[in-house]
Amino acid sequence: MKPGRRRALILLILVGLFLLLNSSLVWKWMYPIKYRLEIMDAARQYSVDPHLILAVIRSESSFQSDRVSKKGAVGLMQIMPDTAKWIVDQGDFKPANEDYLYDPVMNIRIGTWYLQFLHARYEGDAAKIIAAYNAGPGKVNGWLSDGQWNGSRDHLEDIPYPETRMYVQRVLYYQDRYERVYDDELH
């Protein structure tokens, strides 16, 4: 093969790969949605951005409903049992059995209710909501009142807990990805 044709073939292959990698099919494969109906129902019921719910689930459990963390958080949205009990009482939920946190429908509803609760508490500020989902509102309120963190997205590096700092960054990243990939599909 002549050098000019070889370069043209390589260029054609590279352009083809670029187009393939930028196709919505590839992006949807990289950022899947499982439990779409359950997420959309909870998002509508509690007025929470479905992209945020997806980002939390992706970060917490990678869509594995039987996941249990080392600290004891359970299910898709990795809810601590004590927090779940409080949410069940506050939100007037009626779990069918003791293993309700393993049920994707209940876990998504309880987790989304909690995101809505945090949304109201932190006036819709995504960084604070996500930090509180991970570390708890008490810790976040302490950081804010002590001036350790001003609560802004631009100062995530000031979050005192490295785990929470990385968690907030990861959830915001995934939320952005899900918004870009599923821009008009989830509203």
Rank of each mutant, 00 (worst) to 15 (best):
H119V: 07
K2N: 15
T164Q: 10
G91M: 14
H155W: 11
D184E: 11
Y167E: 07
R5L: 15
I33L: 09
D184M: 08
P95H: 08
L144I: 09
S69Q: 00
Q148I: 05
I10W: 13
P50E: 03
L20K: 00
M77T: 11
E179G: 06
A127M: 06
L25K: 14
Y178I: 06
G75P: 15
F63L: 12
P50R: 02
K71F: 02
N134E: 06
Y167H: 12
Y182G: 04
G124V: 04
I10S: 13
M30E: 12
E179H: 14
M1V: 05
D82Q: 11
V88P: 12
D66P: 01
K34V: 09
V15K: 10
R58G: 01
I159A: 00
L118D: 01
I159S: 01
D89C: 09
V68N: 05
Y178R: 10
Y167G: 08
Y174I: 08
S145E: 14
A73W: 02
R177M: 15
Q90P: 00
V56N: 06
A55Q: 01
D41H: 04
D99Q: 04
E163G: 11
Y35S: 09
H155R: 15
G16C: 03
L21G: 10
L144F: 03
E123L: 14
M30C: 06
K34R: 15
V26W: 07
R109Y: 15
G91S: 11
R36I: 00
Y178W: 07
L14T: 09
A43Y: 01
D158Y: 10
P137H: 10
L186H: 05
S152C: 07
M1W: 03
L186E: 02
G75K: 09
L21K: 02
D41K: 07
Y46K: 03
Q116L: 06
G136I: 02
G75M: 11
E60A: 03
H187G: 06
S47I: 05
I79V: 15
L11P: 00
F117Y: 15
K94P: 05
R121V: 10
Y161A: 09
P162F: 12
H187I: 05
Y31M: 08
Q148S: 09
N107V: 07
P160V: 14
W29P: 00
Y133L: 02
V171D: 01
Y102K: 12
I130Y: 08
P81C: 06
F117L: 07
G147Y: 13
T83L: 13
E185N: 08
Q169I: 11
D125V: 13
N150P: 05
W86D: 13
M166P: 00
E163I: 13
I39M: 09
G16A: 12
M30Y: 11
I129E: 01
L101M: 11
R58S: 06
S47M: 01
R5F: 14
H51F: 09
